[in-house]
Each structure stands twice: as C-alpha cells, then as structure tokens.
C-alpha cells in the first residue's frame, strides 16, 4: 500500500485565467444566457407595449408627436373600418369552426388508433405545408379556385355541376377557404398535443362502456383536449383577423381585415391609427389568452410536469 501523494485539494487547472474570464463559472459568459431574454424584451415586449402609447399620440403630416388623444380610436370605431373589422371577426370565427370540424377528428384518430411509435410521424405530415412560403401557398390557390380553375373543371368534368361556381374566390367564402387551408394544421397539432396527456386506455374504456362515437367525443375527448382546442382557436382566430395576405389575394375588392387596415393606415402615414389597431389586436389576444387560461389552465399544454 502506497502513501498517496496529494495535490493539496486543488487541481492543476486545464484552463487559462483568460478563458476563465470569458467562459468560467463567474466569467462574463454567464451573462450570455440572458441574451435571448434581453432581445425579446427589447424588440418584442417593448414595441408591442408601446403600441398602446403611440395610439394616443397626435398625428402630424408625416409622423406623430407625443400627446394624449383618442382621435385614432374614434376614427377606427366611428367609420366603416369597424364594420369591416367585425365582418373579419365573423369570417374568422367561421374558419375556426370549419378547421375544428375538419381537423380535430384527425388528432383524435391519430391519438386513439395509430401505433404509439408512428403517432408523431403521422402528425409531422401536417408540417409539410408550413415548409412552403405562405404567400406562395395562398397565391397558388388562385388558379385552383377561379371560375376556370382546377376545382371548377373537376366539378364540371364529374358532372356534378353544369356551370362553373364563382363563389370560391374573390368572396368571403374564398377568404374562409384560404384561412382553413393555411391554419388547419394548427388544430391538428394543438389537439394532438393536448391529448398526448390523455392515456390511451380512455378511448378503450369508452368503447367498453358502449358509448357511441359522438357521445365519447362530446363528453370525454373534447373536455380533455380543451386546452389544445382553445389554443388553436385563439391562434386561428387572431391570425384570421390579422393577416392581410389572405383577404388581399383571395378576397374580393371589399375584403378587409385588421391587417389590411393597419397596412392602409401606414400607407396613408396615419401612424397613430395603425398603432391603435395593433393595440386593439394585442388587447383582444391578451383577453382571449386570459379567458382561456382562466377556463382551462393553458400552461398545462406547455409544462409536462402539470400533465
């Protein structure tokens, strides 16, 4: 047995003092972890909150100056803009409903009947459309939905109709079709995410009890998946009101939503009005998220520990 030679508790450092200064425990490097937080605060939180301030500024010819006026809000609520805004909300709500009816059953099917290992792969199929530019996807609907488009050709060819249907595009229906095509995958994702926390035997128990599919869906599955459905609903609803591309490309001349209104206000150099509309959108989003959180703890979706 040998008497050990000790190094006196301290080890010959493998790093230099300089590298310690940058990357060591107490080095400058540890502040790097706050960088994303700082970035988000500086370029996301602050500008989004400032919309509230800018919306009450006074409009000048090319810019705005500090002040306190509700002129922009009066302008928004007291004009056709508000009616357009409400119409956009209605059309957006219809899109949410259609996306739910078409998309949610897919999430249920994948969770209940697809082998556990293949579930994520099946869900990932719905990411494919997102990999294509949103603008291109929406523009590409034009030759499909038009009077002489692929859809009408197919319908006439199959003998279902004699004359082309012109309601598919440049109408409110066109906007709904565009929104559903763009946002349906969110319903599938969020629905599935929420149901991942539902053990699979639940579906079998329902079968054993002999409840029919609709009752199972209404009484058991929808309540369990509620946080996911709600998250998708808020997402689709807000984007339906806010993204100007869809009404711009697929809606008729009168198709206007909050995004279009903001864009027009900026073109007209009416910055307080643009910011007022942005602030209204922000408030609606926050309100919906708060209500959703109050109804069903939305953090359940994000925090695996709470599942």
């Amino acid at each position: 047995m040998s008497q050990p030679t000790t190094t006196g508790g301290r080890r010959q450092p493998a790093s230099s003092p300089l590298s310690d200064l940058l990357t060591g425990e107490r080095g400058l490097g540890r502040y790097a972890f706050y960088l994303p937080l700082a970035f988000l605060i500086a370029f996301f939180v602050v500008p989004m909150l400032l919309t509230l301030v800018w919306s009450v500024f006074e409009r000048t010819n090319f810019w705005m100056e500090p002040g306190f006026t509700f002129g922009a809000y009066a302008d928004f609520f007291g004009s056709a803009r508000f009616e357009n805004f409400l119409r956009a909300m209605k059309s957006s709500a219809i899109s949410v409903l259609v996306a739910f009816v078409l998309g949610f059953p897919i999430a249920v099917f994948v969770r209940s009947s697809v082998p556990e290992k293949a579930q994520h792969k099946a869900i990932l199929l719905f990411i494919l459309p997102f990999m294509i530019s949103e603008v291109i996807r929406i523009f590409a609907l034009r030759p499909i939905l038009g009077r002489h488009g692929v859809l009408n050709d197919a319908l006439i060819g199959s003998g279902l109709i004699d004359d082309p249907i012109s309601i598919f595009i440049y109408t409110p229906t066109g906007v709904v079709i565009g929104e559903v095509m763009s946002y349906l995958p969110f319903m599938v994702f969020c629905g599935f995410l929420a149901m991942e926390s539902v053990p699979r035997y639940i579906f079998e128990v329902c079968d054993d009890l002999g409840s029919d599919t609709l009752t199972t869906l209404r009484r058991v599955i929808v309540p369990l998946a509620a946080p996911g459905i709600l998250a998708a609903t808020i997402f689709i609803f807000i984007n339906g009101i806010g993204v100007f591309l869809i009404p711009d490309i697929l809606g008729g001349p009168g198709a206007v939503n909050a995004g279009t209104l903001v864009l027009n206000a900026i073109s007209a150099l009416d910055f307080p009005l643009a910011m007022a509309i942005a602030a209204i959108m922000l408030v609606i989003l926050m309100a919906l998220l708060l209500i959703g959180h109050w109804l069903f703890d939305l953090t359940k979706l994000l925090d695996p520990a709470k599942r």
Binding site: T6, G8, G9, R10, R11, P13
Partner: peptide, 16 residues
Amino acid sequence: SIYGQDVTELAPDKRS
C-alpha cells in the same frame, strides 16, 4: 477544505 486547502469557492473542475 480538502487536504487543508479551502475549496469552498472552487468550481468542480478546479478541485482535486
């Protein structure tokens, strides 16, 4: 302390 040397403030890679 390890062998008489105060290591309280040392990171794990600096301790023996």
